[in-house]
């Protein structure tokens, strides 16, 4: 019964993520309107057949902007996770497998870095350089390395004393082969669920930072920016804030449903 429920979760997650992905892919080639095109007659226009999600304060079509904006959000999330995972695996694998002084020092530094909530770290990194999509990705990526490194390290610590690792060494496998061919595949299970969680956190962080105005810069639309722009029009045009928010929730919900299946 438990398995069945988990399967259902997984399928719902797949469907939601699939729809989101489809929307983003379609947005690459087609949007109902030019997301940058302003129309002063449509300022804060409500929901209509022509503009199903209404228009923003410049009269731009919200649906078109969401389609493009969620692409930015997802790309930033993906890139962050790729950077975090790649360096996390390298650092975690070497420190966990070899241990020793380098491990001690690196892990102390990771501990200290983990004391900064990742959004704060990214906030400062980006605040000191200039806000731009690339800097945002770099900042979030760096901020996510310590947590991935920790996870990979603890998995390597767990695995390195297993008998199958000893057997592999006895059968002539070198350290690098043991690390990346024998041990790494066994961390996939833990790693993949933390990658999904990491992706969600990255999406949240991107949206949060763009909301604060130091993430994705105009004219690129992003879900977080749209919500922050919408704040001033909350009385006259609540849809302006609600629709990007709902899309953001759906992106996160889909991934977390898939993730809960993996746990």
């Amino acid at each position: 019964m438990k398995r069945k429920k988990k399967n259902l979760n997984f399928h719902i997650g797949l469907v939601i993520s699939g729809i989101m992905l489809l929307m983003i892919l379609v947005g690459l080639f087609y949007t109902p309107y030019n997301p940058e095109a302003m129309d002063s007659t449509l300022k804060n226009a409500g929901i209509s057949l022509a503009h199903p999600f209404g228009c923003d304060n410049f009269g731009r079509d919200i649906l078109s902007r969401i389609m493009v904006g969620s692409r930015t959000t997802v790309i930033v999330g993906l890139a962050t996770v790729v950077i975090g995972t790649f360096f996390g695996i390298i650092i975690g694998a070497f420190t966990g497998y070899f241990g020793g002084l380098a491990d001690e020092i690196l892990m102390r530094i990771m501990d200290a870095l983990l004391a900064f909530p990742s959004i704060l770290l990214a906030l400062v990194i980006i605040g000191l350089f200039n806000p731009s999509t690339w800097n945002l990705i770099m900042a979030l990526g760096i901020a996510f390395i310590p947590s991935f490194a920790r996870i990979v390290r603890s998995e390597f610590l767990k695995c390195k004393n297993m008998d199958y690792v000893t057997a592999a060494k006895l059968n002539g496998a070198g350290d690098l082969r043991v690390m990346f061919v024998h041990i790494l595949p066994n961390t996939i299970k833990v790693l993949s669920s933390s990658i999904l969680i990491g992706f969600n956190n990255a999406v949240l962080a991107e949206a949060g930072m763009s909301f604060l105005g130091i993430g994705v810069m105009p004219p690129d639309p992003s879900l977080g920016r749209m919500m922050s722009e919408a704040q001033s029009y909350i009385f006259s045009n609540p849809g302006f804030a609600i629709f990007p928010g709902v899309v953001l929730i759906l992106i996160i919900l889909g991934i977390s449903l898939i993730g809960s299946y993996l746990e």
């Binding site: 199958y164 000893t166 592999a168 059968n171 595949p185």
Partner: peptide
Amino acid sequence: KMVFQDPYNSLNPAKTVGWILEEPLKN
């Protein structure tokens, strides 16, 4: 070569039996 006590953690759970047996030959 060595045979271990606990057959549950002396085989790499992420690999097939064929892969595990082939590994020493590859190395």
